[in-house]
């Protein structure tokens, strides 16, 4: 059922396969992204797709390019086309929060946003909190043993970082409210609460 990643659903008919390869060949040379607007109307929007179109994103401060079909979600583009695998695919229905990333500073469910919609925006994933110096949020998770299986953790730390960036003086209650869109099925909420108290004392 992962056909938003670009696979046709329910097998490929011979005709569909031939049509598909034709389209793919065509877009390899000229992506519709680069096609000039032909309509006279100001603000008119050319069609992108249904074949792969050029996608340029800014992920964790870096400009990256790939080609995706319009139906590919931001989550699948990040994970499966751009090798940014911090964000996780769990419910794929905008409910569990494992896919949480920030877009222009605000948390979103990347599974419920088309990759094309994220063009020109500042996308930050859990990877942005790691690197040479571990961000205070994942560090507090480590200090307080605030994960078990860890699958929800990238979403939680992104939501938590965004909450503290929005309000560095947030109370633990306000931070918890900002995590209401993330679910931990192991139930490590108590340890996360300890991490939150630690972070709030430090002022983010």
């Amino acid at each position: 059922m992962n056909d938003s990643q670009g696979e046709p659903r329910g097998g490929i008919s011979r005709r569909g396969f031939l049509a598909g390869t034709g389209a793919a060949t065509a877009v390899a040379g000229v992506t519709s992204e680069l096609a000039p607007a032909t309509a006279a109307q100001p603000g008119a929007a050319p069609a992108h797709g249904p074949g792969p179109v050029l996608l340029q994103l800014t992920v964790n401060g870096q400009k990256v390019n790939t080609n995706v079909e319009p139906r590919v979600t931001l989550l699948d583009a990040l994970r499966n086309y751009l090798d940014v695998t911090g964000c996780k695919r769990v419910c794929d229905r905008g409910t569990c929060g494992a896919c949480t990333v920030t877009v222009n500073g605000r948390t979103v469910y990347s599974c419920t946003m088309l990759a094309l919609e994220a063009r020109g925006m500042d996308i930050r994933t859990a990877e942005n909190l790691g690197g040479a110096k571990l961000d205070a949020v994942p560090a507090a998770f480590v200090d307080n043993d605030a994960q078990q299986c860890g699958f929800c953790t990238p979403g939680f730390v992104v939501s938590l970082r965004a909450a503290l960036d929005k309000n560095p003086n947030a109370t633990p209650e306000q931070v918890e409210a900002a995590l209401a869109g993330n679910i931990c099925r192991c139930g490590t909420y108590e340890q996360m609460r300890h991490a939150i108290v630690q972070l709030c004392k430090k002022g983010g």
């Binding site: 309509a39 603000g43 992108h48 249904p50 079909e69 319009p70 139906r71 094309l116």
Partner: peptide, 19 residues
């Protein structure tokens, strides 16, 4: 999901003819 063509007009006036 089934694939589709995607349009992102920048005005309401340019949106209407696409519907």
């Amino acid at each position: 999901m089934k694939n589709f063509t995607y349009h992102q007009p920048t005005t309401i006036a340019a949106t209407l003819p696409l519907l």
